[in-house]
Design a protein around this nucleic acid. Structure first.
Ligand SMILES: [Mn+2]
Ligand SMILES: [Mn+2]
Ligand SMILES: [Zn+2]
Ligand SMILES: [Zn+2]
Lengths: 138, 138
DNA sequence: TCAATAAATGCACTTCCATTGCATTGCCCT
DNA sequence: AGGGCAATGCAATGGAAGTGCATTTATTGA
């Protein structure tokens, strides 16, 4: 397991204290994380800094932003070995309408869709909504 | 072609003047429509009324709401003959990053996805982003 | 080492859209 | 006509993203 600071540096990100904390928080989380989640996790942190930290992470392809339709953006670490640098990792996301949690289903890729003449797709977002495994009692 | 007021009544909606205008505006539009679009179309209308009109239409399955990830909700008429009353019509949507327009691709249904044990999907949203036919010059 | 420079952070403020409260108006039915 | 409910209009609120700018912290290079 490569240390966090080395990892961030390998991505071209200066490993400040704040960034390391955010990164490690994301590492621990099994579900996609909101800005408020992180804000609440370390009471000391300023929202703007966290916001910009996530933005930096996103630009450097450390995290991806997830719009699950809840109105609140979520973030999750990119998969190790995903080739985000070259093309987006188009896996799908599941949003539980019961507990509100959103998780990456990294194994489930968004299927290829044949579009009508003239349409060129560059990105895709597929969100399934329903009841997650925890909430369905399995 | 069934008259608008009869159609709305058949859906359990009182056909007020405002509602008829909104409905006809939606009928004419080839692309998904925002609240502001409608607001600008009839300078006289109040935003709140339009908002609640769309909400009513949505509840009565006259329109469906589209979250294309732009941060602004869009609305489009439900297909004639779609069985929205029973289950959602899970077609996909295309959002053009050039002109900002979003269109329903009602022919293209969201493919069925096999989920891991314990996950129960009740709804799905698939948005493709890219360049639309108009903007790609086809 | 120290000054110059650049990057990151913190606070306040703004923007944008969705949403609500409440008073008023309009419609329908008896 | 009048009672009652539905629809409307105006004002205000809320939540989240995003920006401006001053301050602090880190890096560089003389
Ligand atoms: Mn994901
Ligand atoms: Mn549609
Ligand atoms: Zn759940
Ligand atoms: Zn376009």
């Amino acid at each position: 397991m490569i240390p966090s600071d080395e990892f961030l540096e390998s991505k071209g990100i200066r490993p400040t204290a704040m960034r390391l904390l955010v990164f490690q928080h994301l590492t621990k989380s099994k579900v996609a994380t909101t800005l408020s989640d992180i804000e609440n996790a370390f009471a000391k942190a300023d929202r703007t800094t966290l916001f910009r930290t996530l933005k930096t992470f996103e630009q450097k392809r450390v995290v991806h932003q997830i719009d699950d339709g809840s109105g609140i953006m979520k973030y999750a670490l990119c998969e190790e070995g995903c080739n985000c640098e070259l093309e987006r990792d188009l896996h799908l996301h599941f949003h539980c309408t019961n507990c509100g949690k959103t998780i990456c289903l990294t194994e489930q890729k968004i299927p290829h869709i044949n579009l009508p003449e003239g349409f060129v797709a560059e990105d895709a977002n597929l969100v399934l909504k329903g009841i997650c495994d925890k909430c369905s009692g399995q």
